[in-house]
């Protein structure tokens, strides 16, 4: 009897472990199937380089260049804000802060990670959007810049937590060695600790990018969703995720519009895959040094 229970539980755990692999493969297969039939009809080059997105019109025009640029702009903006703040907070928490402050900071940051994105979006619409409009004297505050700030908020906790782990796992003897050679604290941190923790920090950044590029609700509420090619970070933009979320409900199953949304999802999947892949390459390279 005990053996039966044992092996039954083992099987259940095995199935649970396998499920994630099955899901990823199924999702990829599904996206590929729906996206591919669209690419065959419409042409992948025309899709990725087209300037106009009028998917529900007749005749429809499916050009996602503005959406790709929108996603890219918001992501770059958010990373420019989130990475320095995140890494520096991680340094402060692990190297400088006394224990009391460190504990408070850590639990607050965990709390920050738990804020749902729709709440962040709501707060952004009410407070940040009018503020950005007034301070930069723009026609509207619903811009890529506002979106970047709000998304940076969401990426910062991820970046801090993982970078902090990486920095902390740098062996103490590295620091002791550097200090013994007469390096100041800043020199130790910059030349030894940061360098040794770099693979972890890059992984943290990549996870942050992953969170930002896949975020939907907050960007849909804040970035204005104008599907044009943005000329500056103070233009409204429309991201790929927001387009899928906003239009999935209307698209009749199996129609061109429906499949075009899957094609966007496929492009998004490909982009995140490339980002992760590059991160892996970089991490592997760093480890060999």
């Amino acid at each position: 009897m005990r053996k039966i229970i044992d092996s039954a539980i083992e099987t259940i755990i095995f199935i649970c472990g396998m499920l994630s692999i099955v899901f990823v493969v199924l999702i990829f297969g599904f996206l590929f199937k729906e996206g591919f039939s669209f690419f065959r009809n419409f042409g992948i080059l025309k899709f990725v380089t087209g300037h106009f997105w009028y998917a529900a019109s007749d005749p429809a025009s499916f050009g996602i260049l503005p959406l790709i640029l929108g996603s890219t702009l918001v992501t770059i903006g958010a990373c420019t804000i989130a990475v320095p703040i995140g890494v520096m907070s991680a340094l402060f928490i692990s190297e400088i802060a006394p224990k009391g402050i460190r504990d408070v900071l850590k639990s607050l940051i965990e709390l920050m990670a738990a804020i749902p994105s729709v709440v962040i979006g709501l707060i952004g619409v009410i407070t940040l959007v009018p503020f950005v409009k007034n301070i930069f004297n723009l026609p509207t505050g619903l811009t890529a810049f506002s979106g970047s700030i709000m998304l940076a908020f969401m990426a910062i906790p991820t970046i801090i937590t993982i970078s902090e782990d990486a920095i902390r796992s740098v062996p103490w003897k590295y620091r002791e060695g550097a200090l013994a050679l007469g390096a100041t604290k800043w020199q130790t941190v910059r030349r030894v600790v940061l360098k040794a923790a770099m693979p972890g920090i890059i992984a943290a950044t990549m996870l942050g990018i992953g969170r930002v590029i896949g975020e939907t609700m907050a960007v849909m509420m804040i970035t204005g969703n104008a599907a044009h090619i943005p000329h500056s970070i103070f233009d409204p933009v429309r991201t790929m995720t927001a387009t899928i979320a906003a239009e999935m409900g209307e698209a009749v199953r199996g129609g061109m519009h429906y499949r075009s949304l899957f094609a966007i999802a496929f492009v998004l999947f490909a982009i995140t895959f490339i980002v992760n892949f590059m991160a892996d390459l970089f991490l592997g390279k760093n480890k060999n040094i």
């Binding site: 009028y54 019109s57 005749p59 509207t140 619903l142 509420m221 969703n225 104008a226 599907a227 429309r238």
Partner: peptide
């Protein structure tokens, strides 16, 4: 006619969102 909204128009997710933006933005 094949006329469309300008690509520069901001797409809002609900009528309430349009109302809110008009309330606070004198250009819109």
């Amino acid at each position: 006619s094949k006329d469309e909204f300008s690509v520069h128009s901001l797409i809002m997710s609900s009528s309430q969102a349009i109302y809110d933006e008009v309330c606070q933005n004198s250009n819109s």
